[in-house]
Design a protein around this nucleic acid. Structure first.
Lengths: 118, 118
DNA sequence: ATAATATTCAAGCAAGTATTTTAATGTCCT
DNA sequence: AGGACATTAAAATACTTGCTTGAATATTAT
């Protein structure tokens, strides 16, 4: 069971006004975690980044990230199930593309703040 | 062992030019996954979002996300170790704030594309 | 000192996840 | 039809992670 706000730090530990306001505000990001979780794996991050630039078949993806085809397929299905990617069949091959245009701007924002890293 | 590009799809499966170009380009996002992984958990996402708005003590955070204090501390240490948050001690309390200004713009970008969700 | 409070640490559990291997689809070509 | 090829599915393994519990640390007040 989770310790509730009434059991711990009863009196003056937290700033009541601040907490009340933020507890409300924080709901704005509810349900957004899966999107970031998709980006939170190095392999998948690369796949997504590549897909923001071009439509790709499974084999392309495997080749780009240097993984097995099965692993690439696995990740692509993950993205598909999460509603983040869509696919289109053309003959033997299946082409994937992103189903959510937010990735471009998110990655752009992240890349801009990257200057100070190394 | 990973199937290399020479073992699978030897000939015409993938688009060689495309793959070569993207394999290069994809390195731009190398090392960025931990940042998104931090955002990839609902609880931590809320904590980070709250911290973009205000400096908070551990107890505040626990109260905002409705978790135990230990869990909040756990997540805050995680962020600290990842170089994403910093802290300052004031008496008995420890105040956390973000050490990386990219979160505001990333979350802003994500929130903008949120209209089409439900 | 001692007590009280805020935070942290360490061990451990339960659930989730990335990857490999092997087998199964589905599609094109002859 | 049958073979070749691109992709997917399923099972197995190894690893990661979020959280809880209970003890430990650090600071303040008495």
């Amino acid at each position: 069971m989770v310790a509730s706000r009434d059991d711990v730090c009863d009196i003056f530990c937290f700033n009541e006004e601040k907490v009340r306001r933020l507890r409300q505000k924080v709901q704005d990001v509810e349900g957004m975690a899966p999107l970031f979780k998709a980006l939170g794996d190095e392999t998948r991050l690369k796949i997504i980044f590549a897909l923001t630039l071009d439509e790709l078949c499974v084999c392309d993806v495997a080749s780009i990230i240097g993984s097995s085809v099965a692993a690439a397929s696995h990740h692509l299905r993950y993205l598909r199930n999460a509603g983040l990617a869509k696919y289109r069949r053309q003959g033997k091959m299946v082409f994937y593309s992103l189903d959510n245009n937010c990735f471009s701007s998110i990655l752009e924002a992240a890349l801009e703040h990257r200057i100070s890293k190394p």
